[in-house]
Design a binder for these strands. Structure first.
Length: 128
DNA sequence: GTTCTGACA
DNA sequence: TGTCAGAA
């Protein structure tokens, strides 16, 4: 079903629509973009155009925020998901054992399970 | 009428 | 984050 994925990636939704779909303010949506959490396309007159995937992403971000994950944490999660995806691709091409892949994915899981909002001044940092 | 960027009582 | 200004 690559056809469907292609449609979900088509950027055709203007700000107003995304605002209604996500219940987020334009301010927030633009802020998340500034934090590289979403990458809408641009078109006529420099207007942002979002795809269905972008909307899902925004909804996901909203959920993470509601669960107490801060923007930095979400950014880290997506960064690591990207790294994990790359590692997975590399594993499919090169002679990596199932054991290696398992180790990598589990490592990502462990890292992601520790990002919550610093409620009492206890910030979380971890070198990538 | 809608969206964009930059700025801040 | 909200919101206002000035431009597109």
């Amino acid at each position: 079903m690559k056809e469907k994925e292609l449609r979900r990636s088509l950027a055709v939704l203007p700000m107003g629509t995304v605002m209604k779909l996500t219940s987020l303010t334009a301010r927030q949506i633009r802020y998340y973009e500034a934090q590289n959490l979403v990458s809408p396309e641009r078109s006529d007159g420099n207007r942002r155009l979002y795809s269905l995937n972008d909307v899902d992403r925004l909804l996901e971000i909203k959920d993470y925020l509601a669960d107490g994950v801060n923007v930095a944490g979400i950014k880290a999660i997506y960064d690591q998901q990207q790294r994990a995806a790359q590692a997975k691709q590399a594993a499919e091409k090169q002679p990596l054992t199932d054991e290696d892949v398992r180790r990598i994915l589990q490592d990502e899981f462990i890292r992601q399970s520790g990002f919550s909002q610093p409620a009492s001044g206890l910030h979380q940092q971890r070198p990538l």
